[in-house]
Design a protein around this nucleic acid. Structure first.
Length: 517
DNA sequence: GGGCGGTGCCC
DNA sequence: CTTGTGA
DNA sequence: TCACAAGGGGCACCGCCC
């Protein structure tokens, strides 16, 4: 199969908004692919090379300037091999070597192929189909049911390999893919709840309400004395978190798969800023024999909230209630008690509210409300788990706006936000946001902002600091980028405030008051 | 050896 | 990570 | 309801350059 076949399919997928048409086009290509081509083709058309992110981003690719070929010649296999080499290139002189490989890749590609490769390698396929629709396509092409593909994907953690299995052996082969301790599964996610009351109303009384911590998701596997740890995206971090490995080794079991969250605590047991937790991710190993505590004293504490396997028994199909019972049994001892995620089963509305208050008083992020009857549905952001976090709002000044990309091309989209200077100077920039904007609001911004223009740069329009916008946010974090030393976290537009002036906007002190940790 | 841009991945 | 959009 | 696209801040890592 040629790369150009994949590019043609991608174009067809991108040309329609109808999901059925997209999956049909994808499925047709999968049927035409050879057994060894399925893995790279599925990976590419779900938006990521088989090798993962390869270390060449938009900046490197923008520097590649070779004329396109007239006729397509790359095969899928050849490109996959070249990507392998690209991914394996490191050390001194690697930048030059990469440039050579990219020149070769692009120089033998047609213009259409160059554009496809560019989108693939920057991680912005933008064909309106990623893993979700590929699951449907694999089901269609293989004749296996969607549920079977979904389940195998969740348990194997990898769609390309799942697709190869499905196309080779159909539903029967998929049924052979089970949970394997030592191989991470896709984690179950929570959807955003509107409020605690709304979540309780939606899920009923057969629920548990647990603390939601501002840390990083971890999945911990144990077989005998071997322990491995993965993140939410199934990146292995075992070597970076020896303290989690040691705590898991002390559990009274021989095999387990645990799901949880980890974060850094201060000496009082209160959560540190998320940034401190994050400083421990991305470090491969620490190797200084101090059990993980680095020179800044950041130690990670794990909190487990689910159990997917215990001593030979798979639990993903069991109701949460059963999994929680077994988890409680595993973490029964005094020594293990600190590893339990705090929570209350079947709370009254008042008790549920008290759990939320307790979480916030303890400095945590909020709560998650979970249906006790639900099995572990990995990889789907269903309604069985709903997260509830308090929302803060601020009135901020619009300092500028950036021209959008993709479906926002031609619109002034991402806005720069400033807080009032308590000393009376110009507003101080504290962040940007592109969220919360309807098409109507984008049109309004695009029409209105030029009337406030003060200065223009490529891609950015700077405004006189007059427009006030009400912003929702989760909190603030310390910043070295912004002059006030603080930045907004998860800022989104609620509405513009034509009734307010920059003098009415919230001050930098109001932003600083939202700092956590 | 330190600064810096580019990249990937946490949220 | 959050939100708006469209099938 | 689901999947996707729009893009945010910060941190560690890496290679390159001074």
């Amino acid at each position: 199969m040629l790369l150009s076949d994949v590019v043609t399919t991608s174009a067809a997928v991108g040309a329609t908004r109808a999901r059925r048409e997209k999956t049909t086009a994808l499925a047709d290509l999968l049927r035409a692919a050879g057994p060894t081509e399925i893995v790279p083709v599925v990976a590419w058309l779900s938006g990521t090379p088989r090798q993962g992110r390869i270390g060449t981003g938009w900046r490197t690719l923008a520097a590649v300037d070779v004329p396109p070929a007239d006729t397509p010649s790359w095969t899928v296999q050849q490109v996959d091999e070249l990507l392998d080499e690209l991914a394996g290139t490191s050390g001194q002189g690697s930048a030059r070597r990469r440039r050579e490989l990219l020149d070769r890749l692009y120089g033998t590609a047609t213009a259409d192929e160059q554009r496809f490769l560019h989108r693939l390698l920057t991680g912005e396929l933008r064909q309106g189909a990623l893993e979700g629709l590929m699951v449907d396509a694999v089901a269609a092409a293989s004749g296996a049911g969607q549920a079977a593909v979904r389940r195998a994907f969740m348990l194997s953690g990898r769609l390309p390999e799942t697709a190869a299995t499905a196309l080779a052996g159909g539903a029967e082969a998929l049924a052979g893919i089970g949970l394997r301790v030592g191989r991470p599964i896709r984690p179950m996610l929570a959807s955003p709840g509107d409020s605690l009351d709304a979540a309780l109303a939606a899920l009923g009384t057969e629920v548990t309400v647990e603390h939601k911590l501002d840390g990083a998701r971890i999945q911990v596997h144990r077989t005998g004395d071997e322990i491995r740890v993965w993140t939410r995206t199934l990146r292995e971090i075992t070597a970076a978190v020896p303290e989690i490995v040691e705590l898991t080794r002390a559990l009274p079991c021989s095999a387990a798969v645990l799901d949880g969250e980890t974060l850094a605590l201060d000496d009082d047991g209160r959560p540190r800023a998320f940034q401190d937790t994050m400083s421990r991710f991305g470090t491969e190993a620490d190797g200084d024999g101090d059990g993980g505590r680095d020179e800044r004293g950041v130690l990670l504490s794990p909190f487990f909230f689910d159990l997917l396997h215990l001593d030979g028994h798979d639990l993903v199909d069991e109701p949460l209630e059963t999994r929680l019972d077994l988890l409680a049994g595993l973490l029964e001892g005094d020594r293990q008690a600190p590893l339990r995620m705090p929570g209350v089963r079947r709370p009254s509305p008042e008790e549920a509210a008290a759990v939320l208050d307790g979480a916030l008083d303890a400095g945590q992020e909020g709560v998650v409300v979970k249906d006790l009857a639900a099995p572990y549905a990995a990889g789907r952001r269903g309604k069985a788990w709903q997260k509830v976090k308090p929302v803060h709002t601020l009135d901020l000044v619009v300092l500028g706006a950036e021209w959008g990309y993709g479906r926002r091309t031609g619109s002034l989209s991402n806005i720069h936000l400033g807080a009032r200077d308590p000393d009376g100077g110009e507003p101080v920039m504290v962040g940007k946001t592109f969220k919360g904007m309807t098409d109507e609001l984008l049109a309004w911004q695009t029409e209105t902002f030029p009337r406030y223009a003060r200065e223009e740069e490529p891609g950015v329009l700077f405004l006189r600091p007059e427009l006030v916008v009400e912003i929702a946010l989760d909190g603030a974090q310390r910043s070295t980028r912004y002059p006030g030393g603080v930045a907004l976290r998860f800022a989104r537009v609620l509405r513009y405030r034509p009734d307010r002036t920059a003098a009415d906007a919230d001050s930098l002190d109001a932003v600083r008051a939202l700092l956590s940790g």
